[in-house]
Design a protein around this nucleic acid. Structure first.
Length: 439
RNA sequence: GGACAGUUGGCAGAGUGGUUGAAUGCACCGGUCUUGAAAACCGGCAUGGGUGCAAGCCCAUCCAGGGUUCGAAUCCCUGACUGUCCGCCA
């Protein structure tokens, strides 16, 4: 959401910034609506003022036992015009809100201009991609050869874009999540949260998924709840409708391990093999709430927290700053962390860390007050994956694969979470049915 | 799923149709007093919006949305949430 006052004061700044995302100029139509609405409000308030004072007078006259029918009739007549103006105010306000709430956040100065992911700017690299003479396997080949990754059964139950894992891989997924949570809570100062996974529509509005991205969400028929597409949604909304003191435990840092549900409506045909893009996946999320002046530094810190996960897993990655055309709706600036996937011979996104500035805070009314000040200000919100568990599993499979025996070495940091297991070996007689029996 | 009760400012808690945006207490901020502090006393203390150079003036908001009325925190309807009891259940 955008600050209407700021738009009034400097419309060019907004139009120019939005143009970087490929949007047409918006402010003139916004300001026209705004002007019209204020004119309506002014007239309405004048009438209301008149009504209020006459009504007070009636009260006093009645107390004195005087006749008030004349004056009552007079007030009664004002009602039509008032109703008319109220209706007009509401209509104008609605379209103004609808318009404003569908426009993406302003981009940070540093964000490079560009059309799509090809224009993203690499800022860091870690590790050396492993390259071998053999053609490396993709994660689903490794997983299926292990006999622990079953897309057929998942499809039978749920259709495409679902997977069912067994045995060592199921355990490794759990191990990854535990490892990440322990890292963020133990070393990075995040508070672990176990949030609701079903939320109401206003919560998704608060973080920016609604109204514009309704078709990307799953929802429940009976109750109208939405399944969270990321824990960013419940975690950030912890601050919704609050006014806190400036020194009240800021920054706040929350982490949660949750499933995420996405309809992937717009990605038909994309990443259809394997478990890279699923309707359901696990993710460890990081969310920070800060003062405005602290969000830039917190953004770097958060990105570092996410990178640490990959460093400890010893998976090569690079970090890119998204260009204007690739930066998401609610973000001012986003770093993607891309893990090296030997099977694809490329880096793929495994984490996305965004500074949303006051954009979400404004939508959900997350505010604070500075000491001695009367005015409230909006907090800044940040979110990042720390990291996507399913994709981390993919990265481990492809980077730790042992072609000699078809096994997958368990990264050191995960071994304590897997009972000391050092390597996942293929199950014997690798047909899915047998595997399930032996699992 | 059934029955009842509730939702008021940062918190607690008055208030059932007329100067109530809202008593009172606590918390918080400023002042007096004090060597300093505490106590006591005095004063201040909601949010959003309109208008104005400004001081200010005005409008809206007592869970949300409708309605009744000249006038609604207060009456009516719908919904959300919380609590209690019953039923069911991981």
């Amino acid at each position: 959401m955008h600050d209407l006052r700021a738009i009034r004061e400097n419309p060019e700044r907004f139009d120019q910034n939005w143009a970087r995302r490929g949007l047409e100029a918006q402010t003139s139509s916004i300001l026209k609506l705004d002007e019209e609405r204020r004119a309506v409000q002014t007239e309405l308030q004048e009438i209301q003022q008149e009504r209020n004072s006459l009504s007070k007078e009636i009260g006093l006259m009645k107390r004195d036992g005087k006749d008030t029918s004349d004056i009552e009739a007079k007030v009664g007549k004002m009602k039509d015009r008032m109703a008319e103006l109220e209706e007009r105010d509401r209509t104008l306000g609605d379209s103004l809100n609808q318009h404003l709430s569908s426009i993406p956040n302003l981009l940070d100065e540093e964000v490079p201009n560009g059309a799509d992911e090809n224009d993203n700017k690499e800022v860091r690299k870690f590790g050396e991609p492993k390259r071998s003479n053999d053609k490396p396997l993709e994660h689903y080949e490794i997983g299926e050869n292990l006999g622990m990754m079953d897309f057929e059964t998942a499809a039978k139950l749920s259709g495409s874009r679902f997977v069912m894992m067994h045995s060592g891989l199921a355990r490794m997924e759990r191990a990854l999540a535990q490892f990440m949570l322990d890292l963020h809570t133990g070393e990075h100062g995040y508070t672990e949260v176990s949030p609701p996974l079903l939320v109401r529509d206003h919560v998704l509005y608060g973080t920016g998924q609604l109204p514009k991205f309704a078709e990307d969400q799953f929802s429940t028929k009976e109750t109208g709840h939405f399944l969270i597409p990321t824990a960013e949604v419940p975690l950030t909304n912890i601050m919704a409708d609050m006014i806190i003191e400036e020194d009240d435990a800021l920054p706040r840092r929350y982490t949660a391990f949750t499933p995420c549900f996405r309809s992937e409506a717009g990605s038909a045909g994309k990443d259809t093999r394997g478990m890279l893009r699923q309707h359901q996946f696990y993710k460890v999320e990081l969310v920070s709430i800060t003062l405005p002046e602290d969000s830039a530094a917190e953004h770097d810190r958060m990105t570092d927290c996410a990178e640490t996960v990959l460093k400890k897993l010893d998976i090569p990655f690079r970090t890119v700053m998204l260009c204007s055309g690739d930066t998401g709706f609610g973000a001012q600036k986003t770093y993607d962390i891309e893990a090296w996937l030997p099977g694809q011979d490329t880096y793929r996104e495994i984490s996305s860390c965004s500074n949303c500035g006051d954009f979400q805070a404004r939508r959900m009314k997350a505010r604070f007050k500075r000491k001695g000040e009367k005015k409230t200000e909006f907090l800044h919100t940040l979110n990042g994956s720390g990291v996507a568990v399913g994709r981390a599993l993919i990265a481990v499979l492809e980077n730790y694969y042992a072609p000699a025996d078809g096994g997958v070495v368990v990264p050191d940091v995960l071994q304590p979470y897997m009972g000391g297991l050092k390597k996942i070996m293929p199950l014997q007689g690798a047909t899915t049915e047998q595997l399930k029996a032996s699992a």
